[in-house]
């Protein structure tokens, strides 16, 4: 079945018992006719996406859940910026990744820029500042569209309306150890720098920092040394039966 779906981890070799046969982690979404309508797979075997990612993919949009860590800010330029974390009911655990979404809602007529921009203008940039072991991928966002600014020879690339900048985030083993030692939450600062313009003028560049307080929790891990070392946590679980079955199945071939 794993081969049928073409998700076999081809790096693990056939003689590598019991690990051969594992898939890359991820998911497919099917419609009523059984046709694949979306999919998402992860390079790292420890990563997996929460049920929220599946629901968001089906819905075609991302909405913050009732318990998701969220903070918002708006200033006199009329642009509202909201940061929230999706996945795991808002709780960060070592291993599974979450999504940090920075949503920028602009009034009609305003836009912000992607690189490249002419000298003197500011392209949108985002930085994440969290505790040791808080990791993030670069931000992904919807495509820009061209915009011609009077006096600028080349079309600029802009976002307008409401745009989401989405970053995969996760706690690595260092932060996993901090969580295991008793940290009940972490603080993460999300900073966006942008310059907004309308059809006639550009405004002063702004920098906004939003602070998220993200609850943390222990991951569930089997109680054998390799898994414990992976995240620095100790959770008692007897996986002997599971591992025995894996080995029996593969050595029986």
């Amino acid at each position: 079945m794993i081969r049928q779906y073409e998700v076999l981890n081809t790096i693990v070799q056939p003689d590598d018992v019991p690990f051969y046969g594992v898939p890359f982690p991820g998911f497919f979404l099917l419609d009523e006719d059984g046709v694949i309508v979306d999919k998402l797979f992860n390079r790292h075997f420890a990563h997996r996406d929460g049920v929220e990612a599946i629901l968001d993919s089906y819905a075609g949009r991302v909405l913050p859940g009732a318990g998701d860590p969220l903070t918002t800010a708006s200033e006199d330029d009329g642009i509202a910026v909201t940061a929230f974390v999706r996945g795991g009911a808002g709780v960060l655990r070592a291993g599974p990744r979450r999504r940090l979404i920075l949503r920028v809602a602009m009034p009609e007529g305003l836009h912000i820029y992607d690189d490249p921009v002419p000298d003197g203008m500011v392209a949108t940039s985002i930085t994440i500042d969290g505790p040791d072991g808080f990791r993030n991928d670069p931000a992904e966002c919807e495509p820009t569209h061209p915009f011609e600014l009077p006096g600028v020879t080349q079309p600029l690339q802009v976002w307008d309306g409401t745009v989401d900048f989405t970053m995969n985030v996760w706690a690595d083993s260092v932060l996993g150890k901090t969580i295991a030692d008793g940290a009940e939450s972490i603080e993460v600062d999300v900073t966006i720098r942008y310059q907004a313009c309308d059809n006639a003028q550009c405004f002063i560049p702004r920098t906004r920092t939003l602070r998220l307080e993200i609850p943390t929790g222990l991951s569930t891990r089997p109680n054998f040394s390799r898994a414990r070392a992976m995240v620095g946590e100790v959770v008692d679980m007897d996986s002997a039966t599971h591992m025995k079955r894996l080995i029996e199945r593969q050595t029986a071939d």
Partner: peptide, 9 residues
């Protein structure tokens, strides 16, 4: 509709 999830373990 259905979601098919693949995990390593």
């Amino acid at each position: 509709r259905a979601a098919l999830l693949f995990y390593r373990s």
